[in-house]
Structures are given as structure tokens and as C-alpha cells.
Design a protein around this nucleic acid. Structure first.
Lengths: 251, 251
DNA sequence: GCCGCGTTTGTAGGATCGTAACAACAGTAT
DNA sequence: ATACTGTTGTTACGATCCTACAAACGCGGC
């Protein structure tokens, strides 16, 4: 079995199929249609198991059955299968989150507790950054060495906030980053203070108003890990610390 | 635990979470945020298990962790969770079907084998009907007693085919059905021949050109079950049989 | 000491995986 | 006609893995 096929089977398992179901479904697409024996011959699924597996695939709407002797199976088209799985997914998601929304309680006091949260994984850090940025009302500082950490959603949010009258400044020593914002209206571009050594492992920094901050580093298993805090004493102190050291450098 | 909650947990399991993961996620939304003990107190998840479950939820991007003592957990917002799960789903689906598309073989001879296929479930019958209808090039006959079996997608496809110059005739004795097509251009409405007794269990009939036919019945576990055939001798013979009996009645 | 936190280990149950035996049937040779 | 052969569809049964669930442990703070 090829590595690609193993990967595809894994993916199908993530979508809720068993490995047998994935193998039978794939085999039937190879064959266009076929009997239990046909399927068993080109997979490692025992023939005796094909019948029940096919039945369960029929229940999921992924194949059709010809009641003959021998029984023949026919997979539905890829487009139809995708649509079927997708609508099933949407339905389940609706059921699940409907309830969560009904029971979730209001965040009391808008995050006034002294909390510093950890976020692992680049996409997650990205989401959280956008979240923090879009709550800014007066000023934003965004800094990074790495152009690839200026994702489209970040860029969009910065531009949107700038347009809303928020003072946005992007801090980077790298030209690649600086150029990304050269054309954006209302965005000030600055260089980091000279005294700050550029740690190779630093990721991005996000400051929104005087009460929200996010700081990420690269490395570790997840690629990027961030800590962030919003509305806490921690946040404002951290922000002051960071910015005070810059002010001093200027003087 | 309420029935709603059980349903929601089931739904989360369908989305790939374990029941513990679902319970912890829901509990954290109830609390807005909390420690392992907080969660254990309002669920039947043992406190000692909350830590590992939360870790796995963090990997999935469904909650964030505060590294303190005690450890505090914070769920991501419903919108963020939905988006995360959805993009994960899309990614997996892409991985899975990309491979299937690469290996699927061309249907040789365009369904010339003598095959009659079975389809169970109303939605599936609907899909197959639309599929057959949209391959019609010259004429279409669509019949049903039941207005609810004239779904929007059927209606759309019939109108689209009629617009493409296909001769479309809808056959029904029910006014509710007849009225649905009264306004559609290019669609002829007919009554079934008087000699044909209207079996209570009949569902829909779809005929496309002289080579594709689908026939469904209501009843059984799945609500609606259909047989269909395309390009086979079976199909053309069946079509002739059905239509011949009508012709005779006319004479 | 005492108590709560976080970790680790162990067991029971369920679902999937994988093997094997079985009756029913069709075709062939005797 | 009978016996033999091979296939089909069904059923039963261990092996294996993961989840659910329970209990114990080391640790640090009060």
C-alpha cells in the first residue's frame, strides 16, 4: 500500500470512518464498481468483512447496492460523497453548539481576573492575535521579525483598525515586513530600539490599547507558542515594562 | 444531565471528540473558565482525568491553558471553535478525496452493464434523482403523488432542463403537485392514466430519455427506498413497459 | 501534620480488526 | 443421479486497541 493511500485512510478515519470503511470505499472507486471478492482481492480487508462494512457505508450514503448474485457495490461520486459528509458535519455541529450557546454564561467583568493564557500552534496564535487586535480602540503595536507571521488576516485586521481611527504602529527591523505595510494607510512603521537584541526565537508581539498583550515564540513541538492577557494588571504592567524600556533608550 | 446535553455530547462525539472531551468543553463554557476541580464538580468526569482531556482539547484548539497553580482552563469562543473544527474538517476531506480522485478509474462504457442499483434514504434518493435528471438530453418524465417529494433541487433541475430544451412532463393526480409546476416554463403537466391504481406506498418515478429510470417506494426503515438503472437494457425495457401500458390506455 | 493539586498506574468494557467455520448454491466430473 | 469443487453470504470467535472509570502516589502550601 502506498504512503499516499495510508494518508488518505488516516484522513477518512478523522472524518469518522473506520479503516475498513475507508479501504473499501477507496477500492470501489478504483474499480468503479465490484463485488465483495473484487474488493477483498485488492485490499487487505477480508472478504467476509466486506459485506458488513459495505452495509455501514450504505447507511452513510457513500455507496449503493445492487441486489444480485453476487451482490455488487457502487460508490457514489466524489462530489456526492463530499456533499453528504459535509452536510452531516454541519448538522452535527449545529446540534452540538446550539446547546453550548444556550448554556454558556456571560463572562463577568470582561476578563478582569489576573490571567495569563497560553496558546499553542500557529493558527491558534493567529486567531488570538486577530481577536485581540480587533478589540483595540485607541492604539495598536504589532511587531515581528518574520514576514510569514504577518498573515493575511493580521494584515486585514490592522488595516481595518487603522481605518477605524486606531493608531496602528508596526515595528520591525526587517525590510520584508516593513514593505508589507508601506502601502497601508494610517499605519506607522517603526524600527525596534537599537538596544533590543533580536532573539532568534522570538515570534510576534501584539499590544492593543493599554490592556491587552500577546507575545509569541518559535520553537517547541508546535512551532509557535504564545502567552496573552487581556484586561489584567499583568497585561498593563507588561506593556508598560516593554514600552518603558524603549522610552529610556530614546532619552 | 439533561436530554439536551446528552444529545449535544452525542453530536460532539460524531465530530470526533470523546465524551469526556465534550463534557469538559461544555462545562468550561458554563463556567466561562475554571480549574480541573471546577470542571469535575459539575460533570461526572473524574478530576484526575480532566488534565489529560484538557490537554487533548488544547491540541485541537478548543481551549487555552493558564499555567498557574492551580491550572486554569478557558474555552475558545463558540465561533472560534466552529471555525477551527470546520477548517479541520475541510482539510481532512481534501486530503481524503484528493487521493480518491487520483485513483478512481474511468467508468468504462458509461454504465452499459446490466445493473439495477438500490438507494436507501430520502436524501440519497433525492441526490440520485437529480443526477439522473441532469443527464437527460431529450425528454423527462417525473411523477409522484406526494408534494413533499418534489424538493427544491428536483424543481430546480426540472426547470433547468426544460430551459435547455428538454421536453419535461410532470405526471401527478394531486393538485398540490400540479400547482408547483403550473408556473414553470416548458413543463407539461399530465394526469396519470386512469387505469393505474395509486398504490399508497408508491413514491416517485423519474424517467430520463429512453435509458435511465428511477422508481421509489415509501415505507421500510429508511422512509424512502429507490431502485434505478441507467444505460442498461433493464432501464429501456422497464421504461417501455411502463409507457406502453399508458399508450394502450389512451387507445 | 493536613489538604488540595497534578501525575501515574491499573482495570473493565466496547469497538474494530483479523481468522475461521458454516450452509447454500452452481458447475463439473464420474 | 451422485460426488466433488469452488464461490457466496453469514455467523462466530479471539486479539487488539482505545475510552471510561477508579485508586493511589508524590508534592507543596497552610
Amino acid at each position: 500500500m502506498s504512503g499516499d493511500e495510508t494518508a488518505a485512510i488516516d484522513a477518512f478515519e478523522q472524518l469518522g470512518l473506520t479503516s475498513y470503511e475507508a479501504k473499501v470505499f477507496i477500492a470501489l472507486h478504483r474499480l468503479s464498481a465490484g463485488t465483495a471478492r473484487d474488493v477483498a482481492d485488492i485490499t487487505d480487508v477480508p472478504r467476509s468483512q466486506v459485506y458488513s462494512v459495505a452495509e455501514s457505508l450504505e447507511d452513510r450514503g457513500l455507496l449503493e447496492v445492487q441486489q444480485s448474485n453476487p451482490i455488487r457495490y457502487r460508490p457514489v461520486s466524489v462530489e456526492e460523497a463530499r456533499e453528504t459528509l459535509r452536510s452531516q458535519f454541519e448538522r452535527e455541529q449545529e446540534r452540538a453548539f446550539e446547546y453550548v450557546e444556550a448554556v454558556e454564561s456571560e463572562p463577568e467583568g470582561e476578563e478582569t481576573q489576573e490571567n495569563i493564557w497560553t496558546v499553542r500552534g500557529r493558527d491558534r496564535v493567529d486567531d488570538r492575535s486577530v481577536d485581540i487586535l480587533s478589540q483595540a480602540e485607541h492604539r495598536i503595536v504589532f511587531g515581528t521579525r518574520l514576514p510569514e507571521l504577518v498573515t493575511p488576516s493580521i494584515e486585514r485586521t490592522l488595516a481595518e483598525r487603522a481605518a477605524a481611527g486606531v493608531s496602528v504602529s508596526v515595528v520591525s527591523g526587517r525590510d520584508a515586513v516593513r514593505e508589507q505595510f508601506a502601502a497601508v494607510d494610517g499605519v506607522t512603521i517603526e524600527r525596534p530600539p537599537a538596544h533590543r537584541t533580536d532573539d532568534q526565537r522570538s515570534g510576534r508581539i501584539v499590544i492593543a490599547d493599554d490592556d491587552s498583550i500577546l507575545l509569541s515564540v518559535r520553537g517547541g513541538e508546535d512551532g509557535e507558542t504564545a502567552i496573552w492577557s487581556s484586561g489584567s494588571l499583568f497585561a498593563s504592567v507588561l506593556i508598560q515594562l516593554i514600552e518603558a524600556s524603549d522610552e529610556m533608550a530614546v532619552e
